Measured scan of single mutants.
Amino acid sequence: IEEVKKIVSEIQSKQLTRITINGNTYQVNSPEELVEYVRKVFS
């Protein structure tokens, strides 16, 4: 979970619009959307 928080804060600070998780690239339009992807991947 700490690793996830680190990734999320990194993305928020860079305002990235794409994230790659487990080889899948997602278009991310908002931090909320990012959190949803993270929940799916780590749930």
Rank of each mutant, 00 (worst) to 15 (best):
V4S: 05
S9Q: 15
E10H: 10
N24V: 15
T25D: 06
V41C: 06
L16E: 05
R39W: 15
E32L: 05
Y37A: 10
K14R: 07
K14E: 05
V38E: 00
K40E: 08
L34M: 02
I21R: 01
V28H: 15
K14C: 13
N24S: 11
I1N: 11
S13M: 12
R18T: 12
T17Y: 08
T17I: 10
Q12I: 15
S13D: 13
I1D: 14
V4F: 15
V8M: 08
S9E: 12
V35R: 01
I7N: 02
S13C: 11
T17K: 07
V4T: 03
E3P: 04
P31A: 06
R18V: 14
Y37W: 13
N22L: 09
F42H: 03
L34R: 00
R18W: 12
G23F: 05
E36L: 06
K40Q: 10
K6D: 07
R18D: 04
N22W: 09
N29C: 11
Q27I: 11
V41G: 03
E32D: 09
P31E: 01
V35Y: 04
E32W: 09
K5G: 11
I19Q: 00
R18C: 14
Q27N: 07
R18M: 14
S9V: 10
E33R: 03
V38K: 00
I1Y: 13
P31N: 02
G23C: 04
T20A: 07
E3G: 06
S43Q: 12
Y37S: 05
S43N: 11
N22T: 02
V8H: 01
E10M: 11
G23P: 15
E36A: 08
E10N: 05
Q12E: 11
L16T: 03
I21K: 00
L34A: 01
F42K: 00
S13A: 12
S30D: 06
N29I: 05
I11S: 01
N24D: 07
K5L: 14
S30R: 05
N29V: 06
E10I: 12
R18Y: 09
I11V: 03
Y26H: 05
Y37H: 11
Y37G: 01
K40D: 07
I7F: 07
Q12P: 02
I1C: 12
T20P: 01
S30Y: 05
Q27Y: 08
S9K: 13
V28K: 15
L16W: 05
T17R: 04
K40L: 11
S9L: 15
Q12A: 07
V41H: 13
V38C: 00
K14M: 14
E36F: 09
E3F: 15
V38T: 01
V28W: 09
I7M: 07
S43V: 09
Q15A: 12
Y37T: 13
N24A: 10
V35A: 08
I19S: 00
F42W: 07
S13P: 01
V41F: 13
I7Y: 10
Q12S: 07
S43M: 12
S30L: 06
K6Q: 09
N29D: 12
Q15W: 08
S13I: 10
L16F: 07
Y26W: 14
I19T: 01
T17D: 04
L16D: 01
I1P: 14
I19Y: 07
N22E: 05
N29R: 07
S13R: 12
E33M: 05
Q12R: 15
V41M: 14
Q12F: 15
R39S: 05
S13T: 12
K5R: 12
I21V: 06
I19G: 03
V28D: 13
E36V: 09
K14D: 03
S9W: 14
V28Q: 15
